[in-house]
């Protein structure tokens, strides 16, 4: 990764492995926040949504 993306919560740098996929969940090493990778090259992060358990067939 060219530049580690910033954690949207605490602005810390969040190192990502090159195989990281869009949609993957990563945890901020500083504040422990669950983050969603919304874009790669360059990587963009946002807080991962909370959601409760409801499933289909």
């Amino acid at each position: 990764m060219a530049m580690d993306p910033e954690c949207p919560e605490c602005a810390a740098a969040v190192p990502l492995s090159p195989e990281t996929l869009v949609g993957e969940i990563v945890t901020c090493p500083d504040c422990g926040m669950e983050l969603e990778v919304t874009q790669v090259n360059p990587a963009v992060l946002q807080a991962a949504p909370e959601e409760e358990e409801d499933w289909g067939e």
Binding site: L21, G23, E24, I25, E36, A48, P49, E51, D54, W55, G56
Partner: peptide
């Protein structure tokens, strides 16, 4: 409709956004 769901998919923790599931 759950616009985002958290799953373990092929060993990775993922957010799926184009899923048509709900309650």
């Amino acid at each position: 409709r759950k616009d985002a769901i958290k799953v373990i998919h092929q060993g990775r923790r993922m957010i799926l956004r184009d899923d048509f599931t709900g309650k």
